[in-house]
Design a protein around this nucleic acid. Structure first.
Lengths: 133, 133
DNA sequence: TTGCTCCTCACGTCACGTGAGGTGGC
DNA sequence: TTGCTCCTCACGTCACGTGAGGTGGC
């Protein structure tokens, strides 16, 4: 039921660093569904599924909701097809661009907040030795 | 009941960018409690409360839980006192140091994840023009 | 006095964590 | 056949969001 190119959920968790619960939840939300199942009901992930999972994992720090990530995957899948009419392709490209721009903005904001946090932390650290030195 | 140096929750929300719900929740968790209340029950925040709120807000991006932030505030308050015996002070300083080190580590990890996210995003963007150009 | 601000429940949400009880795979 | 992995509920958690229904403040 399982050939050499498919993986059980435990293998996938080990390879991606995601929890079993996260893998099942992402499937439940329609984000990444395993290619197949064994007769007994075990999930079977193919290499392409794992690449999808790694993409989602990589994008998560940009503060997307799972719904937004799903939309990004949908657009990516759509654009990967070659039977797409020009108008649909152009529209999808613009939508994906918009997502990526918002994500870039949020990355910038997160970086600024990290700087502010580190500033606050060094201020705290310095208050440890207020008079002495 | 309210003098010139105290603020209603709405003023505080405007000044800190935190929601009313967040201010009330942080109080409920024992993180930042307003200095007083009016006879009618309105919260009254003093300047010192607002500084506490701004510190918590600044530290949040370092991925602390509210419980951890509470512990940091407790240690900071303790260390601000001058009636502290040397042993307690030294111990508290070490504890706070440990927190700050862990926070610095997490900031570093978050920064690396942001880089990875931006890499994944530019890879996505490039896949938009696979053949043309 | 009017309306704007504030109050306290209390249920909802997002992205999972964590058992409980049961079965598949090599 | 044994045990290790996997399955599906389903309740719990964290940090709030979002009304509902009622009252305080200038």
């Amino acid at each position: 039921m399982k050939n050499a190119d498919t993986f059980h959920i435990g293998d996938v968790a080990a390879r991606t660093g995601l929890s079993l619960r996260t893998l099942r939840y992402w499937e439940e939300m329609g984000l990444v569904e395993p290619t197949g199942r064994t007769d007994g009901g075990f999930r079977l992930y193919a290499e392409v599924d794992i690449q999808r999972l790694l993409l989602v994992r990589a994008l998560k720090p940009a503060d997307f909701t799972l719904e937004e990530l799903q939309e990004i995957l949908r657009l990516r899948d759509l654009l990967a097809r070659d039977d797409l009419d020009g108008a649909t392709r152009a529209k999808s490209e613009r939508e994906l661009e918009r997502f990526l721009e918002r994500a870039a903005d949020r990355c910038k904001i997160l970086r600024e907040r990290l700087v502010a946090a580190e500033l606050a932390m060094s201020a705290l650290r310095e208050s440890l030795t207020p008079t002495a030195d």
